[in-house]
Simulated scan of single mutants.
Amino acid sequence: MMNVVLVGCGAMSKAWLDAAREVPGIAVVGLVDLDADRAEARAREYELDGVVVGTNLDAVLDRTKPQAVFDVVVPAARREVAFSALSHNCHLLTEKPLADSPENARAIVDRARQAGRVHAVVQNRRYVPNVRRIRRFLDSGAIGAPTSIHADFFVAPHFGGFREEMRHVLLLDMAIHTFDAARYMVNGDPKRAFCLEWEPANSWYTQGSSATAVFEFGGGKVFTYRGSWCADGFRSSWEAGWRIIGERGCLVWDGFDGLKAEVATREREGLFDHLEPITVPPLNESDRVGGHLGVIQDFARAVESGTEPETRGADNIKSLGMVFAAIESAETGRRVDISEDI
């Protein structure tokens, strides 16, 4: 049994609690929020009888002595929560992003390593079935090594609250899902970034609702991202729409169920190589899926077995490095190198 304290009882906590109650062996023993009434309401909603509710994380950890902390707070509070959890010898699973600055990200990852605790991030787009299928398909070499990766993300949600006041809101709050998926699907590490960020006249955000970024990956791969939080009309999937070009063909995914690929043959028809459709195989039974549920299951297995989860902080920091490099590029107007530890 893994006892858990969840900190941050806002809207996102529902996805965590919904998933956690599907995982045998996880018991939520504490809820923490600056608003005690909100934490109490969440405890009633999920019928968490006997759960300890409080506004101070250290005090609740002292009372409950859990094995793990689920961190669902706003990014600005991430470092404080992480340090508190790790100082109480807890394993830590955190909402994305890992941190709100490169310095805080490094500090959290270093502290988790020193503490010898499992530390992971809910980078749940990796656990989307078609993301798994694409990675397996590309690894097979069916269209050759990926050379160019393109993603389009265009949605227009009216969140209200802190997001509409954030700076760099698209890059810092959402783009990491797409960046991390790109890294995973083509098995690439980011090296450099160039980004343009702007605020369209139709936007209801304070700053940074639209961005275009180009990333150089190792091995000659280039990834381009076009995104907007305020693009009404013809909404894209939350997973973005993708075109991945390989040495001998192309894969296209609309972010929903439309997933198809073509491979070039040795024949040529006029100016163009002849193309044939190729099937993207279904999920393998070993593929881990399930969004939040998949991440939490992976985290629980890692704690139990003493291994590292797939979305461990030491790896996820590379995706976060893409975010901060894009932000720096947008602010300075120059290309920015991405170091391995940001």
Score class of each variant (00 low, 15 high):
172 L>A: 13
173 D>C: 01
49 D>S: 14
308 E>M: 04
297 Q>D: 01
294 G>M: 08
246 G>C: 04
303 V>T: 06
201 A>V: 08
122 V>E: 03
240 A>P: 12
95 E>F: 01
124 N>S: 09
182 A>Y: 02
127 Y>M: 07
136 R>L: 06
191 K>H: 04
93 L>G: 08
33 D>V: 05
280 V>F: 11
320 L>W: 05
6 L>Q: 14
88 H>A: 08
48 L>K: 12
195 C>D: 00
176 I>P: 00
116 G>L: 06
230 C>P: 00
64 T>P: 15
337 D>A: 15
137 F>H: 09
282 P>R: 06
290 G>D: 06
113 R>I: 02
224 T>G: 03
155 V>Y: 08
265 T>Q: 02
63 R>D: 12
279 T>R: 11
235 R>P: 03
208 G>W: 00
138 L>K: 11
36 A>R: 14
293 L>M: 05
74 V>P: 09
257 D>K: 15
296 I>L: 15
304 E>M: 06
56 N>F: 00
301 R>D: 10
12 M>P: 00
5 V>W: 12
315 D>R: 15
155 V>E: 10
62 D>N: 15
76 A>W: 13
208 G>S: 02
62 D>V: 12
137 F>P: 01
193 A>M: 05
327 I>S: 05
112 A>C: 07
78 R>H: 14
62 D>M: 12
114 Q>M: 09
89 N>K: 09
175 A>S: 09
195 C>R: 09
186 V>Q: 04
262 E>P: 00
68 A>D: 10
90 C>V: 01
81 V>I: 10
254 D>Y: 07
177 H>E: 01
175 A>R: 07
80 E>A: 14
272 F>E: 05
309 P>V: 05
255 G>W: 12
302 A>C: 08
